[in-house]
């Protein structure tokens, strides 16, 4: 009986396995990041009191900038990968799938780039 070359072959690092792990690890980090964000911005400070001065004050601290970069990176990538999973349910043509995956990647890069530029560039408080 001819047997497949089964013994040494490893599942290895494939894209889908990495994407699955990413969803789990990023979700774990999102729990403290998102709850911290909601608690501070929506409850302690309140959305109506957030203005440019407040953002300038917040981003004067490097710690908050790192926090916001992490939140942007994990939350958005987590969400876009989720969208990719949903899209794969409905789009079955391999070429269309590739197109959607590239489109989502570009969308993610664009929005993350704009967000990162804002966070790194920071803001100056308005003159009184």
């Amino acid at each position: 009986m001819q047997l497949p070359d089964a013994i040494k072959e490893k599942p290895g690092r494939n894209y889908e396995t990495i994407a699955w792990k990413w969803m789990r690890y990023s979700a774990l980090l999102l729990i403290p990041l998102v709850w911290g964000h909601v608690l501070l911005q929506d409850i302690l400070v309140g959305v109506h009191r957030i203005d440019l001065n407040y953002v300038a004050l917040r981003w004067a601290s490097l710690g908050w900038r790192i926090y916001d970069v992490l939140l942007l990176g994990f939350a958005f990538a987590h969400g876009v990968n989720g969208l990719r999973q949903v899209a794969l349910d409905y789009i079955h043509n391999p070429r269309a799938r590739r197109g959607v995956e590239w489109g989502l990647l570009i969308f993610w890069l664009l929005i993350t780039g704009i967000g990162a530029a804002a966070i790194i560039g920071g803001v100056s408080a308005l003159p009184e």
Partner: peptide, 18 residues
């Protein structure tokens, strides 16, 4: 069985366990 890794590779693909 000795075909475990081959099967795991198939199941790790896009249509597999994920």
């Amino acid at each position: 069985d000795r075909g475990r890794l081959k099967r795991l590779k198939i199941l790790a693909g896009q249509a597999g366990v994920w």
